[in-house]
């Protein structure tokens, strides 16, 4: 068995999610190669070479890979990946974008968002927003797989000493080009990999009130998230959304504030180690999954929480 893992990165450093994909690859077993595609990204290749269990790093450096255009990555990965038994990437917005193209070009199915490995052909994945868990078996010779990073404990990013091999494969589909990017600038940790997440829902009433949560997030070193209701209401941008249609998180602590706990939201945070919830409605479904529940008006409880945290931290 030979596995190609696509490295997710920003051209300067490797994303943590890649280490979780490597963990999933390790469960399948076999030689694991990592593909680093980007523009001026040799530092990423060196970082990937140090990750645990990597056999070889393939480095494709070219401006055409600089912005993760799905058309170009799809062609590259389909060509480089042809002959591997498994091609794997994190189920983030990059992997979700180009991996189905890889599968289509190779004429194989894709297994999306796996959360478990049964054997080399059989995988566990959520369907219906996580309200059902399917075990699926692939009949294709090459398995194209996206991995839910929070479902696999990352391998160590240190200790490995794989070789780095430059590959000269330039694929420019010529049908798309990068125009601009608007990334939220934040000193807070990334929502998908943060150890603590504090999220607000419709109960926050407006975007301005999310500042209360940000202050607590800064005390705890937490990321700030939101329910779909809060996004739909226009309080906060969509990249903060936790749930079936947003980000899947599994932090050590998930603090839900003013979130009722619709099934679509629970699908995005139900694997958190500890869930705490503050809601004024004692019937809110969030309390059925919370380890600690507090029935209170959030506009009183959140400032109080800030004070209490200052005392103990």
């Amino acid at each position: 068995m030979s596995i190609l893992v696509f490295a997710e990165h920003d051209n300067s450093s490797l994303k943590q999610a890649t280490l979780s994909v490597l963990a999933a690859a390790k469960e399948i077993g076999g030689d694991i190669d990592v593909l680093v595609a980007g523009d001026n990204c040799s530092a990423v290749a060196e970082e990937a070479a140090k990750a645990e269990g990597v056999n070889k790093v393939l480095l494709a450096e070219n401006a055409v890979y600089g912005h993760n255009l799905g058309e170009n990555l799809g062609q590259l990965v389909a060509e480089v990946g042809n002959g591997y038994s498994h091609i794997m990437a994190a189920a983030g917005t990059t992997g979700k974008d180009f991996m189905p193209r890889v599968a289509a070009l190779l004429d194989v199915a894709q297994v999306s968002d796996i959360m478990g490995v049964v054997d080399a052909d059989t995988f566990v994945r959520p369907i219906y927003a996580g309200n059902a868990i399917a075990t699926v078996k692939s009949k294709d010779s090459t398995k194209v797989i996206t991995v839910r990073p929070t479902a696999f404990d990352p391998v160590s990013g240190e200790g490995g000493s794989a070789s780095v091999e430059n590959i000269d494969v330039v694929k420019d589909a010529g049908v798309s080009s990068f125009v601009s990017e608007e990334l939220a600038k934040s000193d807070r940790p990334d929502l998908a990999s943060a150890g603590i997440v504090i999220s607000g829902g419709r109960g926050m009433q407006n975007g301005e009130n999310f500042k209360m949560l940000e202050q607590i997030a800064d005390l705890l070193g937490a990321a700030v998230g939101a329910s779909r209701a809060a996004v739909d209401a226009g309080f906060v941008p969509n990249d903060m959304q936790v749930g079936q249609t947003g980000k899947i998180v599994a932090p050590q602590l998930y603090l839900a504030v003013g979130i009722s706990g619709a099934i679509q939201h629970l699908a995005g945070m139900g694997d958190s180690k500890v869930i705490a919830a503050i809601n004024k409605d004692e019937e809110a479904p969030i309390f059925q999954v919370a380890d600690y529940g507090l029935v209170a008006d959030l506009f009183e409880a959140v400032p109080e929480l800030e004070e209490e945290l200052k005392k103990v931290l």
Partner: peptide, 16 residues
């Protein structure tokens, strides 16, 4: 191309 081996209900989380 994909065969569904089985579909199960997710492990339920207990209220604390």
């Amino acid at each position: 191309r994909l065969e569904t081996v089985k579909v199960e209900a997710p492990a339920s989380r207990k209220a604390g």
